[in-house]
Design a protein around this nucleic acid. Structure first.
Lengths: 208, 208
DNA sequence: AACGAGGGTGAGCAAGCGCTTAGATCCTCG
DNA sequence: CGAGGATCTAAGCGCTTGCTCACCCTCGTT
């Protein structure tokens, strides 16, 4: 049993932590529908239909439609935070780690823009406790980026006037990729990652 | 009759192009509701209630709920484009005009983040023709920023590898302010505008 | 062969949705 | 003053929504 399955294309299969298979199919269908039309415009019938099941089948695996959104949001935020932390905890100078963080974070938001859109823009549709839980994860993402900036500033690598303001700007720039990215566009996810890493290094005063 | 009314606080009153007064009240109520809960989660009863009117009153001034959203989106995009063009067509070096554009564009997205949120994130809720109309306005915003970058690059003021990619990044950075900005936050709209103008100048290789 | 458990379905309920209609009330102007 | 259009309301229509319920089918175990 492989820990991370692979498609013929080499892309790793997400959501493989969701079992049984019917629950995963429903969740994938929900991600697509939420990304296309938004949480509130998506009906449970639409989700079930995309998964090839009857409307009632949804409620065998999920208590409510909101629970589905929460599962998606939680897994997505965990993944996003994991990406940032892997870069922040890596080897190399602060500049290298910052570039790595931006490159991989942007790539995720572009490649998986369907998921990212739901994760980043449907926060308000969650119930109060679920929303609070997710907001805490976002705070940790913010702290991770801030940490790299602080280390780079302390080491004299970066020239930053406002560390926390710059951290917000960096994250904001990356997140918004999921709003406008389009698979038919001119640029690939990789190209945007490279471009953005360069722009962010410039923001912190690093010359190439 | 003043062309632009003023509140005691000195803030200019938007939506004064919307008449009669009842139609404006409904529209302002809709902006608040759409920003808080999203277009699809907002009911026509909620909008009418906030405006202190009965549900049916909405349909005297607007044919559908979608027409309300379109009016909001159209006026907001016109205003955003006007801000960008005023800066782009101003005097001064390309660097000064770029800084001015970012400063005022960010300030608008922060100060009027309620409106901006609806304008920027509810595009998909519009019908096909209305959406196409708005997308055209966005293209013009993009072209305006790109123009400043091209002029700065041609004049040797800027060091930009990828003009259109950088233009997207600059706009994206500014727009996303409306997602996270909060009136109770640490920073004022002005402060963020100044910070972001600095970050953007760094992106295009201008030293302070 | 009989069983129990769990995933699945068709039908449908109560509530809430966008929007309409009939009629009351207000304002404007001859 | 009194006609007539504009504005607003109470009531409610037809439909869709999230979700439930009674039942069925499949399958490993005894």
């Amino acid at each position: 049993m492989s820990a991370a399955e692979e498609t013929p294309g080499g892309e790793d299969v997400p959501w493989d932590e969701v079992t049984p298979e019917a629950a995963r199919r429903l969740l994938v269908a929900a991600v697509e529908a939420f990304a296309e039309r938004g949480y509130h415009a998506t009906t449970t019938r639409d989700i079930a239909g995309r998964a090839g099941m009857s409307p009632a089948a949804l409620y065998i695996h999920y208590k409510t439609k909101e629970e589905l959104l929460h599962r998606i949001s939680r897994i997505g935020h965990d993944k996003a935070l994991e990406i940032l932390r892997a870069a922040a905890d890596g080897d190399g100078t602060a500049a290298e780690r910052l570039a790595d963080a931006v490159r991989s974070f942007v790539r995720w938001h572009a490649e998986r823009h369907t998921t990212a859109r739901v994760v980043q823009y449907e926060l308000d549709a969650l119930g109060p406790e679920h929303r609070a839980e997710i907001i805490e994860l976002r705070r940790e993402s913010d702290a991770t980026v801030r940490r790299i900036l602080e280390e780079g500033a302390a080491a004299g690598e970066f020239d930053v006037l406002d560390v926390s303001g710059t951290a917000v700007a960096v994250l904001s720039l990356c997140i918004d990729v999921s709003r406008w990215f389009n698979t038919q566009g001119r640029r690939t996810a990789d190209e945007i990652g490279v471009l953005y890493a360069d722009l962010v290094l410039r923001m912190v005063g690093v010359q190439k």
